[in-house]
Computed example of a mutant assay.
Amino acid sequence: MRRDGLSAEEEQFIESMGLFFERQGVPRIGGRILGLLLLAEKPLALSEVARLLRVSPASVSTNVRQLQASGLVDPASIPGDRRHYYVFNSAGWDHRLEMAVTAMDALGQLCQDALAMPGLKERHKLREAVEFCGFYRQELAGAAKRWRARFARKPGGQTTPPPPSRRQRRSATR
């Protein structure tokens, strides 16, 4: 990333990220912010993100809050500087897997609760949905475990534990 702006390749990647995330239901600017933070080698101030993406600071602020809630962006600070900085949170991938597991648990429970109702207990599609949610949850849990194992490996045989998830960080501060 050049000091004065972005290269053509960086801009192309950032725009592609915006379009990709827009198809996933995230505002395009949110995807562009993620793309920029993936490329950034240092924390970026809100005003710097706005300047590089040529968007309003208010738009960046709104979208960064949503990205923080998803676990993919974390706040950062630079000693002596009062501005708000942001970084891409690599542990956010783990958080995304956790969110998917939680969603499958919730959907499975909704369908299970429906099956407990007298008028719905014989619905084949509800039973199938409960089975699918259980299956998918197991697959996601296995994928999360394999991801954590891969993330912990470093070249040269060194291993480091994966950064704690947001849930783990919250419970550690209690």
Score class of each variant (00 low, 15 high):
Gly5Ser: 07
His95Thr: 15
Thr160Val: 15
Arg51Ser: 06
Arg153Met: 14
Gly92Pro: 00
Gln138Asp: 06
Gln168Cys: 02
Pro75Gly: 15
Arg146Met: 13
Ala91Trp: 10
Lys121Asp: 10
Thr62Cys: 02
Glu131Tyr: 06
Gly156Phe: 14
Ser47Trp: 04
Arg166Phe: 04
Pro75Thr: 15
Val49Glu: 00
Pro75Ala: 09
Ala45Ile: 08
Ala129Thr: 15
Asp74Phe: 08
Trp147Gln: 08
Phe151Pro: 00
Ser61His: 02
Phe151Ser: 02
Arg65Lys: 06
Lys145Asp: 11
Arg169Thr: 10
Leu34Asn: 00
Asn63Met: 02
Val73Leu: 04
Gly18Lys: 05
Ala50Gln: 02
Arg32Leu: 03
Arg65His: 11
Leu67Ser: 07
Thr159Trp: 09
Gln168Pro: 01
Lys145Leu: 11
Arg137Ser: 13
Met99Pro: 00
Glu11Asp: 00
Phe132Arg: 06
Asn89Arg: 14
Ser47Tyr: 04
Phe135Asn: 07
Val101His: 07
Pro79Met: 12
Leu39Cys: 07
Tyr136Thr: 09
Ser47Cys: 04
Ala8Cys: 02
Lys121Val: 01
Gly25Val: 09
Arg51His: 02
Ser7Val: 08
Leu140Ile: 11
Val60Gln: 07
Gly35Glu: 12
Ala141Lys: 10
Glu48Phe: 01
Arg167Ala: 15
Gln68Glu: 15
Tyr136Cys: 05
Val49Cys: 03
Ser47Phe: 03
Arg3Pro: 00
Ala143Lys: 08
Trp147Glu: 04
Cys111Arg: 04
Pro57Trp: 07
Ser59Tyr: 03
Pro79Phe: 12
Gln109Leu: 12
Pro161Ala: 15
His84Val: 14
Asp4Ser: 13
Pro162Glu: 13
Thr173Phe: 12
Asp105Ala: 14
Ala152Ile: 12
Arg167Val: 14
Arg65Gln: 09
Ser47Ile: 02
Glu48Met: 00
Gly142Lys: 15
Gly31Val: 09
Ala69Ser: 07
Arg148Phe: 08
